[in-house]
Design a protein around this nucleic acid. Structure first.
Lengths: 250, 250
DNA sequence: CGGTGTGTTGAAAGGTGTCAATGCTAGTGG
DNA sequence: CCACTAGCATTGACACCTTTCAACACACCG
């Protein structure tokens, strides 16, 4: 049982932020009692509509996006194994963006009320939810600098390095290679570029020997060089632990 | 005394999200016992350094920014009256961005431990902090769509309309006019443009009769037209209330 | 076997950046 | 009261990154 607890991706993630008590681990596990499979291209959350559930990703990729009045699309962020989707169902009624499955996925569905309950019953876990919201904000902030003040080449390299880190954090990277089920068009909408220019930028990265990208798999060959070339500083992804001093109630 | 409570900007802001009990109002007021004046151009928070305080703005403007390795600057968001600065001191050790005062300011300094205490002692207020973090995230997400998928003209109009809304929310707008202590260069760094092109874009907005902008004051003349022209949908700023069901402890 | 989605390439147009210079205003000090 | 400076706004010419439009290649799949 202790083993199950410690391999669970969500518990792993929370454990980076604070040292969980056994009771807290049990609460987290109990929230994950309703898993289901979702086929690729499904919308888990729709912009402007009410949240139905909060999800935890156990397997697969998704991405957040917004549709603009002018018909364009802007993607905000990827959602990977261990990430929440629709966490703000806790405090918002309606979603500010949509979330679409990029691959077939396995997710845990959680009724928002159960997460709200943490604020009364497990303040340390509630604070960790705040922590997750803050980290999501940090990623969005870094994404703004990518789009606002970097060239297409640098944006792309920077995003790929972020993803490498994030996928590493859930142990899905082997020697700088990982599954990458993302079309060039989705990348383009993520980075504020056209699909055509995305293609040319990827070509440039390949020509420089920085990456290999074929089918649904990517390899970052010259990690340090790419990092220096695009000015990637991963500190915004670093996990700082939660301050002491929040008394547990559970 | 009830009057003091109800004119306090922070209490006003929280009241939009949930119906505060008298005890909760007292807690919020008690946090604001240490106000001080900050001169313009002061950095309240510095990227990469430890948080010292969480601030509530009582008067004045500030803005969040990041400095990039290539020497450029990207501004992420403005911070207005009633906003938090350094809220994540609660859950993060170090700041992900810097915050600089744009004008002389009056702020309340709060030791982070006191906010952490809310998670144990006032869960509804803790949830509201989560709500604020989520709303900040929504604003950042909208900012990404601005920069990623809009022209310079649309970006600028969209941002100005957001600010009009936010300044209205703290009752500092009179017939679509408000104090606007922002240089063109800061706007440019906010919107991912050069100062030169920012100037030309503002000129275009003026020529179209959309705005008047001279010195430190702005007037939005054709609010509805501008809104239609740039595709501004303010729903992401709307205040949805906190769900019921969080039991208060305080 | 013919769709459909995705990747690829070329040529031309255009939005935005770069560089450089000037004007303007407020503040400072002689 | 007048230089002098610093910060900000403004303008022009030109380069260049990115978009747009269009066409084609390729793989997968029912």
């Amino acid at each position: 049982m202790g083993n199950l607890k410690d391999t669970n991706p969500w518990i792993k993630k929370f454990s980076l932020v604070l040292e969980l008590t056994d009771i807290e681990k049990d609460i987290l596990l109990s929230l994950q009692d309703n898993c289901e499979k979702i086929p690729a291209k499904t919308d888990l959350v729709t912009e402007g509509e009410e949240f139905k559930y909060t999800y935890i990703i156990k397997e697969g990729w998704a991405y957040h996006y917004k549709l603009l009045a002018n018909g364009r699309q802007q993607n905000l962020n990827f959602a990977l194994c261990g990430d929440f989707i629709g966490l703000y169902a806790t405090v918002f009624k309606k979603s500010e963006d949509s979330v679409k499955a990029l691959t077939d996925m396995t997710v845990c569905k959680i009724a928002p009320e159960r997460i709200i309950g943490l604020f009364s019953n497990a303040p340390r876990l509630a604070a960790t939810i705040c922590w997750v919201a803050a980290r999501d904000g940090a990623i969005l902030g870094e994404h703004i600098t990518r789009i606002g003040r970097r060239t297409a080449y640098d944006r792309t390299g920077h995003l790929l390095l972020e993803l490498l880190r994030r996928v590493e954090a859930v142990s899905l990277v082997q020697s700088n290679a990982f599954e990458f089920p993302v079309t060039q068009e989705i990348l383009a909408d993520m980075l504020g570029l056209t699909a055509v220019h995305m293609n040319r930028t990827i070509r440039a990265l390949k020509d420089d020997g920085m990456i290999t990208l074929d089918g649904k798999r990517i390899i970052i060959h010259k990690r340090a060089e790419l990092r220096a070339a695009v000015g990637f500083d991963p500190s915004y992804l670093q996990h700082s632990t939660l301050p002491k001093g929040i008394k547990g109630i559970a």
